[in-house]
């Protein structure tokens, strides 16, 4: 079996200093496994599972927090970080259904002063501006998490998104941190699904899929997940065809051969 160090090296993480399995290998900001919002369930991660995940096709993600220093109650920051860690955890489990790993998850921030109002998004054009103005120059998918979004849940700038980090479609507005943990995590995985080339699996409002599995697909809109599906938590399925489409995206890396 590959060593954790060789896998972490393969992900491009500097192993010269102390390496945290939960921080570096799993990408958790708090370097702890996040709690499952369903108090009756214990979230678990598997080192072996993560190694296998990056030995197959995988993506890297840059989580970019925008304006968190302007949150109404900064004491909630640890909760918000846990919410992001849970989104990472959920996305990894959701994408694992179609043999797509989530490798390196690096964290970035834009202070409210630098964000200059872009931490509060009220329209599609403002989301476009945020994604165009900021970019992390690496191979990861840029996933912006803002302080507040009015009127919608998240946005993909292009379907599929671009891998040219100077293009205007190289990221997603992955959600606003004020939402409930499960809904935020679902939107996070849903928007990155768009970036990787997936469309909704139904027509526009008021349409929803006509099967339970369809309503429970991660690419069904949230309103469908709650109206004809089993709820936000259950609506996290991916079909094999969707997996093929995702794995064909330019952001997807080959498996680590270690």
């Amino acid at each position: 079996m590959a060593s954790v160090k060789s896998i972490v090296n393969c992900l491009g993480i500097d192993t010269g200093g102390t390496v945290s399995v939960l921080g570096d290998l799993f990408g958790f900001i708090r370097r702890r496994v996040p709690a499952d919002p369903d108090g009756t369930v214990t979230a678990r991660v598997s080192v072996l599972g993560q190694i296998r995940g990056v030995q197959q096709n995988h993506i890297h993600v840059n989580v970019i927090r925008v304006g968190f220093d302007a949150l109404a109650d900064p004491a909630d920051l640890d909760d918000e970080f846990e919410k992001i860690d849970y989104a990472t955890y959920r996305m990894r489990n959701i994408y694992a259904q179609v043999n797509l790993g989530v490798g390196r998850v690096w964290h970035y921030f834009i202070p409210a002063a630098d964000a200059d109002g872009m931490d509060d998004i009220a329209s599609g054009d403002e989301a476009d501006d945020l994604i165009a103005k900021w970019s992390v120059p690496n191979v990861g998918v840029d996933a912006f998490v803002v302080r507040n979004i009015d009127g919608f849940l998240g946005m993909a700038s292009g379907i599929p998104g671009s891998c040219d980090k100077e293009s205007k479609e190289d990221g997603v507005l992955a959600g606003d941190i004020g939402r409930g943990t499960e809904g935020f995590a679902r939107t996070f995985a849903h928007e990155i699904g768009h970036h990787l080339g997936l469309e909704h699996n139904h027509g526009g409002r008021p349409d929803c899929p006509d099967t339970l599995n369809g309503c429970n697909n991660i690419m069904a809109q949230t309103r469908c997940a709650t109206s004809c599906g089993g709820g936000i938590r259950a609506a996290s399925l991916l079909a094999n065809g969707q997996g093929s489409d995702m794995r064909g995206h330019c952001a997807v890396r080959n498996g680590c051969d270690v």
């Binding site: 900001i29 921030f109 834009i110 630098d114 165009a132």
Partner: peptide, 9 residues
């Protein structure tokens, strides 16, 4: 003008 780079956390 290039995109700005967020700060690493």
């Amino acid at each position: 003008i290039r995109p700005a780079v967020p700060k690493p956390a």
